[in-house]
Design a protein around this nucleic acid. Structure first.
Length: 330
DNA sequence: AAGTAAGCCAACCGCAGCGAT
DNA sequence: TATCGCTGCGGTTGGCTTACT
């Protein structure tokens, strides 16, 4: 599908160089074609990235430098990680967002292979959906407490359960040290500390430690340090629960879990999303032969059900109860 | 089967910061 | 110091897919 719009109407933010480009030639917009991807990949393979405006010209792409940069960073870069957000990544996102807010690029730095755009989209579509369900602002203290005292412990439980189900070695040696330092935090809060300062691979240990705390301690929201949280969630946090059995009341959009509604060309099946024209092979696969993104997933088990699990972290009772609490607090 | 709503995500837009001149 | 060009970031949108009625 070739989408060539007319000359871009330049706004005040247009630089003079962009303006000149736009006047001199028609710039392409919209979805990238396979040919464009190849041009960009080949050029970067030979010359490296950077200087995007001149790169776009030299590569023979009728795109803005910005567009090329975005395409490369968000899609074509060989280390871009495709597929659903894992439980560990969800936990990481929740934690880091609670710390930094909408600093997507900063958050993405701690999620190898994930782009800021992907994380941003995840947040807007998944997390904000739940805020909407609760009729509260995603930045409100209530919602943040909900994340910290309800979602995150449940995510941790799921991670621990999944790890236990697969292999004990998925929890690295850091478990013992990390668990002793993090699982016994003051106030028995479920505290996922310093994720920003630990490596991605260490997250399992931290998560497991927190999970161990949830499972073994007398953690309840009542004895947490936040009064609001104890008011809100006092009777509804089940320290040890079978989430699969218990939190499956809410209908879940299955299409979001097991199949990509917008299948892209990285799938081994070779299904095309935007690229119905020519090739069944990922440009990145050409660029990086032998790369199999699915096989790169560290924990496929978590991937497949990850979003469903996140959704299942809520049930009708939770939402109703929280809504009541929020209303009372207003 | 058809129409509508909702979810999802790639791509675009506008702005700010930074370095070079 | 001011200006320009480039880059990167966060917000937003458009279009496709799927679910629902």
């Amino acid at each position: 599908m070739d989408v060539i719009k007319g000359r871009i109407s330049c706004t005040s933010s247009c630089t003079s160089e962009e303006l000149a480009d736009n006047i001199m030639e028609d710039l392409r917009r919209g979805p990238w074609t396979v040919e464009e991807d190849f041009k960009l990949i080949n050029y970067i393979a030979n010359h490296g990235e950077g200087r995007w405006n001149s790169l776009a010209r030299c590569a023979g792409l009728k795109r803005t430098g910005k567009s090329c940069r975005l395409r490369w960073l968000n899609y074509l870069r060989p280390d871009v990680r495709r597929g659903n957000i894992t439980l560990e990544e969800q936990l990481m996102i929740l934690e880091l967002h609670s710390r930094w807010g909408n600093r997507w690029s900063k958050i993405a730095q701690h999620l190898p292979g994930r782009t800021d755009n992907e994380i941003k989209n995840y947040w807007r579509t998944r997390v904000q959906k739940h805020a909407k369900q609760l009729k509260c602002d995603v930045n409100s203290k209530q919602f943040k407490d909900t994340m910290r005292y309800l979602w995150m412990p449940r995510l941790v439980e799921r991670i621990q359960a999944a790890n236990a189900a697969t292999t004990t070695t998925t929890v690295p040696g850091g478990f013992t040290t990390t668990s002793t330092t993090t699982a016994t935090t003051n106030n028995n809060m479920v505290n996922i500390p310093s994720m920003a300062n630990i490596g991605y691979n260490e997250l399992n240990a931290t998560a497991a430690a927190a999970a161990a705390q949830v499972a073994n301690s007398d953690y309840t929201p009542e004895n947490s340090s936040t009064a609001a949280s104890s008011d809100s969630f006092g009777t509804h946090v089940s320290p040890v629960s079978d989430l699969t059995d218990y939190y499956n009341i809410i209908p879940v959009n299955d299409h979001n879990n097991n199949s990509n509604p917008n299948p892209d060309y990285f799938q081994p099946s070779g299904q095309l999303g935007n690229y119905s024209e020519t090739s069944l092979i990922s440009p990145t696969a050409y660029f990086n032969p032998g790369m199999d993104f699915q096989s790169l997933e560290p924990n496929t088990q978590l991937m497949d059900g990850g979003e469903a699990i996140l959704d299942n972290l809520w049930n009708v009772e939770d939402i109703w109860f929280l809504q009541q609490q929020f209303n009372n607090n207003m």
